[in-house]
Computed example of a mutant assay.
Amino acid sequence: MIPAPARVGLATTNDPYLLRNLIWCGPCDVPMYPNPAWGQRTYKCGLGCRRIALPADAIESVTWTAAERRATLDAIAPPCRQSVLELLLVKVIVVSDAPDDLAFVWRT
């Protein structure tokens, strides 16, 4: 179980992109970047290999569910979730254009 945020130094953030600095394009092996498009939160490949922006909500939801399976994450408030994911993950790799086709590189 992850201890309360104050005890492990979890940072809170108002960043709307939970996977900033963690999400990578599988085919290109480059970081993806936040891309607000038409009022929606999305991620894009840094090299532009993907023709469509991928929905941030869907990718972040799949990633958080995987993190919950990996560790006991009781009552982690949304502002602390980015910090928790940075502790657990090296990167999230977007394998295809499907927001649930992800691979995770976990810290050991």
Rank of each mutant, 00 (worst) to 15 (best):
M1P: 08
M1Q: 13
I2K: 01
A4D: 15
P5A: 08
A6N: 12
A6G: 11
A6Y: 11
V8M: 06
G9H: 07
G9R: 01
L10I: 07
T12R: 14
T13D: 07
T13W: 02
N14S: 15
D15H: 11
D15A: 11
P16R: 14
P16M: 06
Y17K: 11
L19H: 08
L19G: 08
R20F: 14
R20L: 14
N21L: 12
L22K: 04
L22W: 03
I23C: 12
C25L: 07
G26Y: 05
G26D: 10
G26K: 09
P27N: 02
P27M: 03
V30R: 13
V30P: 09
M32P: 09
P34R: 02
P34G: 09
P34N: 10
N35K: 02
A37Y: 02
A37H: 05
W38L: 10
G39V: 04
T42N: 10
T42R: 14
Y43Q: 00
C45W: 00
G46L: 10
L47E: 13
G48Y: 07
C49M: 01
C49R: 00
R51A: 13
I52N: 12
A53Y: 02
P55R: 11
P55A: 10
A56G: 00
A56L: 02
D57L: 11
A58R: 12
E60A: 03
S61T: 15
S61G: 13
T63P: 01
W64Q: 01
T65Q: 15
T65E: 14
A66F: 02
A67I: 02
A67G: 01
R70K: 14
R70N: 08
A71Q: 06
A71N: 03
A71D: 05
T72Y: 01
L73I: 04
A77E: 15
P79K: 08
Q82E: 14
Q82L: 06
Q82K: 10
Q82M: 10
V84S: 07
L85A: 08
L87G: 14
L88C: 09
L89S: 02
V92D: 09
V92A: 07
I93W: 03
I93Y: 03
I93R: 15
I93A: 11
V94M: 13
V94S: 12
D97I: 07
D97H: 13
A98C: 09
P99R: 11
P99E: 07
D100K: 04
D100N: 12
D101I: 04
D101E: 15
L102H: 05
A103G: 07
W106I: 05
T108K: 11
